[in-house]
Design a protein around this nucleic acid. Sequence first.
DNA 1: CAGGGCTTTGAAAGCGCTTGCAGAAACTAG
DNA 2: CTAGTTTCTGCAAGCGCTTTCAAAGCCCTG
Lengths: 348, 348
Amino acid sequence: MRRSELERRAAAAASGSAVTLEMVAREAGVSPSTVSRILNGTARVRDSKVRAVEAAIAKLQFLPNPVARSLAGGKSMSVGVVTQAIDSPFYGVSLAGIEKGLLRAGYSPLFVSGHWREGDERSCVDHLLSRRVEGIILMTSRLPDEELVNLARSVPLVVTGRRVDGDRVYCVDVDSTLGARVATDYLIGQGHRRIAFISGPPDHPDALQRLDGYRAALAAGRIPFRSKLVAAGDYLEAGGQAAINALLDARVEFTAVFAANDQTAYGAMLALHRRGLKVPQDVSVVGFDDLPTSAFIVPPLTTVHRYTDEIGEGAAEAIVDLIERRTPHARVSAPTLAIRESTRPWRD
Amino acid sequence: MRRSELERRAAAAASGSAVTLEMVAREAGVSPSTVSRILNGTARVRDSKVRAVEAAIAKLQFLPNPVARSLAGGKSMSVGVVTQAIDSPFYGVSLAGIEKGLLRAGYSPLFVSGHWREGDERSCVDHLLSRRVEGIILMTSRLPDEELVNLARSVPLVVTGRRVDGDRVYCVDVDSTLGARVATDYLIGQGHRRIAFISGPPDHPDALQRLDGYRAALAAGRIPFRSKLVAAGDYLEAGGQAAINALLDARVEFTAVFAANDQTAYGAMLALHRRGLKVPQDVSVVGFDDLPTSAFIVPPLTTVHRYTDEIGEGAAEAIVDLIERRTPHARVSAPTLAIRESTRPWRD
DNA sequence: CAGGGCTTTGAAAGCGCTTGCAGAAACTAG
DNA sequence: CTAGTTTCTGCAAGCGCTTTCAAAGCCCTG
């Protein structure tokens, strides 16, 4: 069934003769306007005609041309998605969620990557605008707040990974501060006092939030914050590795490491291993993100689980709400801690 | 500069007044056709007018509307990309390559996921066709050969991960058989004789190729193939884990494991660890794909490196060639072995 | 059964751009 | 300087669909 349709369509396209709305109209003995109205539900149409048109559509295997639709209706039924790295294990899951949520509502996603560069991101947005998208989802954008607010004047925006207040801007995000807090609390609860923190890139809003959460947990645990325990990472494995090496070279003592994301944690674990330190016997490690792989590395990583798919679906839902002038209410669950085997209690 | 343009555009869109080609024509004192011709280089135009139009374009910040362009010109400047799982770490890198290659040639990608399901894949293709893409890239498609050949009558195709012969079909792929051969050869060269193989899903062409390569290497090394050494995996971590457990439970003896992909290898390593076997001291492990993470797990994984970005860029290049009626010649480099620390020589 | 008020429907005018066609302009040659 | 070419360039007709506007049809009521 589906199969033959595909073939028919293929043949049609090959011969350059796609079925048009007009052909349907003729076949059904009504005017194009009527067909259009039935298709879009923009007006009541006599039942008998509805049936005739539906029959014609089925017979001709008509599929409306979205391009013509966009042009005529001024709406493209597509939304732009600016991600930073389509190949990052982290974004992948969100993107899948976005795709799912958008398709369900009849929109198609247009993915483009900003590569963490402000300039690239700007041209992505331009590109999307020129494609007449009806909304844009920005994953952890780097553009300044004010620019986003401004952009929102022309097209609704959903941003993830940071907070921006504006008229047609909606933020869907997990609470990174809370996640970091939970992770650090856990470590403290396990008896750790000297907890190193490997940060993310300092120009990343959520990296800062994670640091805040770490500090808040320390404060709550009456442990003084010591900047020597904080090492700079870059959200990548290499950064985590370098950070541990730096810490160890500086002879900083710690019994646990909280890495700002899982990739950082992987790098950290490798560095510890190379220096002869065992996880979790000598050092406990906690990550953030809970990448699919994290449950399978050796040892399985204790990490902050964030509901990444929810971010994606939530973002999709919110942008659709915004486009259709409803008030979005998408929320994502609070992060939780997935306790696995890279941590253990500490007793001095 | 860029900044202000974006703002201007935003404002324009907000007030519903995008700059049109006609406005440019008026500003430059020529007809719309002339502007169009200059834009597309479809005809010679007097120098003075070219300059006038260019000035007008710059002044008005005109950006042609791709939707109108598609409708009028019958070409959408977009190509569909059917991937199986946008969130798989493996596809990510290819997708990035595709995006890069396509954008460079002026096309935009439309990503959709088939989720490894034939039905989903079919609707993806339908969706893309309805969006009037000019070409489709299918990443490891599941559709039958004949259907693809047929589809190619309506739109040029590039398929990865398998071979299909047809008129407007081009395959870009790494040689999985060779990759598997290289990996297994290496293990044999290190003195291993009992090499287990964890396969991929049997309905996956490249999974079969990997098995072939494994067998070919054994044959070349005069080692009899033993089916007990082959365990079924699913290209995911869990499958690798289960496979090792099955092997161990069946008391199959082996000193090395060749996993059909890296994710499988991760799962295998975890299972070995849980059973108290050390990698590489007790068992050597080799993977396939060389995911970015593989260099950072403990121990860093020896694995077949495939130039995934080349697959993406090659696919993009090929589809553009096909669309523009040139003969594609994109090739991807042969896989190589990234030797790291999950393997060691074996002496009985 | 005429008149009023709704509902249903078609004609036609676009949406912004491309392109075939034919007239205008610019050259060349005689 | 004119006829014959070769270049330019504008007009107008779409691409396939949406949407306004007004005419047509329908159902009541008095």
